[in-house]
Design a protein around this nucleic acid. Structure first.
Lengths: 199, 199, 199, 199
DNA sequence: AATGAATGAGCATTCATTCAT
DNA sequence: CATGAATGAATGCTCATTCAT
């Protein structure tokens, strides 16, 4: 709390954050014990309180870190928006890959910030909003069906991202690139075979 | 502990289950306190242990109830499979509606069984499996692209179902029918406009 | 806290109050440990919280009990006021004896309420006020010097009462009656010998 | 630990003593935290232990300082004894004023040494003893009633001094001179009006 | 069928104090 | 002379659970 200056202190702090992230991601907030966190970080209990006010406080700091990560992601998606418009598929693919990449960067943090945190819903709504706006822009350019409600599409995307992240990304079964490809493959072309496309 | 005969006992049991479902769904397993559950049900703490061995036990009983519900759903989806094959879109739509219907039936239970329960993953895998098999059958009949990996599709479906359920169904914002329609609309026809469909 | 009805519970509560009073009076608020209190009362720690919300809470309840005692004393002093006016000395003597009697009734409580409680000052001010009013009434009747500032007198009385209580009453060295007599003897006649009384 | 020579060290020591006195006087021994004391003095915690062995140690040093002050007071009262015996009232007045003066000199210290310190009783007893001896000497010279038990009188005086100090002197409401006057006025002449003085 | 009373086990947090620099 | 970093030792409190009635 008191923003100690020393390099060693900063390192200890980080060690605690790392340990806490791991512990929280495995046990959840309540079952994660401070005693385990400090043990993992190689400290005794009081040291914990040298750097964090409470168990709640360190949890929230982790959440904030994750928030920060997601905000940067969001911004990158917005930026990306203005650039090359050549190939929609490529664009969507790259956006999705960014998302999965971001979520894969620190798996413990993702677990906490995306799945354990009860306030994650808002964050997902924010992310959905950006996706929606990107999609709508492209829709206006004629790249997507004009009847699609892009808000719904964005929400569905979030759902897929959530689930695939939990099931395949965090478990290490699949990588960001292939997950992005799969989603794009499904969404862009739909499920009906070419001929049956009677709209 | 188990099969007390009395009618009144059976009713008390149910009252406790109901109260527990509500409490768990609101606070999660750890923050749900036995003391609150019994208060909600109008009992004192020891009565709880007259009907359930432990907090874990009642939670698991609720999970089992939900499991049962999901199993019936799964079976209905399988049965449906053999029937009319005339219109895929209708088939998929009706299947999805069944799913959302099932999840909407008892919201507290769904929250617990589908979101809080750490073992829900297996259940979702099972559900994904059925969806996949149905989809593959229809794929073989030529109703869907032959290149689609139906396992992935099923997983994506699960993701969408999960998220839409959490965000719109359990909150009462949307109903099963419209959610099913939205998903179908997106998946079946994909996002690209008709002309652009150059595969 | 929950005002359990049973007779046994009420008794346990009292046992805890008694033990706490004793422990607080010996060690003061901070050094008194809940663990010691319950041990003294023959309970385990959680039982404490069955009857009191916190260590603070039981302390305050004791304070309140003492307050109640003092309020009754105050009222009795007021009542006494209207009665026999024959002999001032006797009146003052009896009033002081009531005060010491009250403070001697439950020594642990007195220690807590009169000496340990940081808010005791107000109580003493209240007591001083009553004494002052009684004294002023008698002053108006010509029983005391007209130049005496009875507020000061009352404060001095409080000081004597405080000190004598702490030093002699609570330690059991002297009894209420003799303490009252000593104070009266000093105050009423002053210290100067009869002849020297040149005012 | 002890006699570091440096001038700066001596100053730091004093700064700590001052800060501690203030902190103790406000919060009492237990609620006063070393961390607060050092913060107030502009140091870090380990520095504290450079000058004092423990929290207890610094408290005791403050007590000792106060003891010293009181001892000087006591001696001055004894000295005064031998001098002019012309006017008792004046003598008592001046003695009391010395006492209040002494207690007003460093209020934090007085609070600690006179009210917080559990061993203050002994000091008060010592002070009472001196007062008693002075009073008895004067009693033998015929200045006071011969029946008065001067030990009791001394104790009562201590009580008044204590209370008036706490309520009026330390709070700055009244000054040593007026407090001394009030006490003398009450004690010397007693409370009964001149005529009623029938012993 | 139900309850008043009691408890075992555990956990977060605080604070005075020390070590190495 | 001074400090950043770390710790040992307690303590208040919570909660699921049981006993006796």
């Amino acid at each position: 709390m008191k923003s100690k200056k020393g390099r060693k202190g900063e390192e200890s702090r980080k060690r605690l954050l790392k340990a806490a992230a791991n512990e929280f991601s495995i046990r959840g907030f309540h079952d994660a014990k401070v005693s385990e966190i400090v043990k993992k970080a190689g400290f005794t209990q009081p040291s914990f309180y040298l750097y964090f006010q409470s168990k709640e406080a360190i949890f929230e700091e982790l959440i904030t870190d994750f928030h920060f990560r997601v905000r940067k992601l969001t911004e990158s998606l917005l930026l990306e928006n203005g650039l090359n418009t050549e190939d929609v598929t490529k664009r969507v693919l790259s956006a999705l890959e960014s998302v999965f990449q971001c979520l894969a960067e620190d798996k413990d943090l993702t677990k906490i910030g995306f799945f354990l945190n009860p306030e994650a819903k808002q964050m997902k709504k924010d992310l959905a909003m950006v996706l929606k706006e990107n999609l709508e822009a492209e829709q206006r350019l004629g790249y997507f069906h004009s009847e699609l409600d892009m808000e719904t599409v964005a929400e569905c995307l979030i759902g897929m991202i959530e689930h695939l992240t939990d099931s395949f990304l965090l478990t290490g079964i699949k990588d960001p690139a292939s997950l992005a490809a799969e989603v794009v493959n499904l969404l862009i072309y739909g499920m009906l075979p070419k001929g049956n496309d009677v709209r």
